[in-house]
């Protein structure tokens, strides 16, 4: 029987892969994609765990991914706009070249 734990482990794997990508990819758009993976992992967790806590928070877990998706859409829009403006200003999308905030 496939229970909640299986889903949670899947989501953990997906999250860690996204984390690795966000930490190590040079390309700004790749980093955005990795962040999307992490969002998806969170969503899976929400829905799966709503079965674990179905007596108290079932509908909350089922409805919350909708908010997350909306936020993710907004994030990706703004993120891409930032990457594009970085590309236009310094002709690169590599994040390790964008270190103007160095102390």
């Amino acid at each position: 029987m496939i229970g909640v734990v299986h889903y949670v482990i899947l989501s953990a794997l997906l999250f860690v892969i996204g984390l690795y990508g966000a930490m190590t990819r040079k390309n700004g758009i790749s980093v955005l994609m990795s962040v999307e993976l992490m969002f998806n992992a969170a969503n899976i967790n929400f829905v799966a765990l709503s079965y674990r806590f179905r007596d108290v928070a079932f509908l909350a877990g089922q409805a919350f991914p909708l908010f997350v998706i909306a936020i993710a859409a907004a994030e990706v829009t703004v993120g891409l706009a930032i990457v594009l403006s970085l590309y236009r200003s310094s002709n690169t999308v590599n994040l390790d070249e964008a270190n103007q905030l160095r102390g």
Binding site: V4, V5, V8, I9, L13, Y51
Partner: peptide, 18 residues
């Protein structure tokens, strides 16, 4: 990180999906 997350997931009591 994955190790920690999975380990804590394993402490969770399993529940059926229905």
């Amino acid at each position: 990180m994955a190790f920690l997350m999975i380990r804590s997931a394993l402490t969770l009591p399993d529940s059926p999906i229905k």
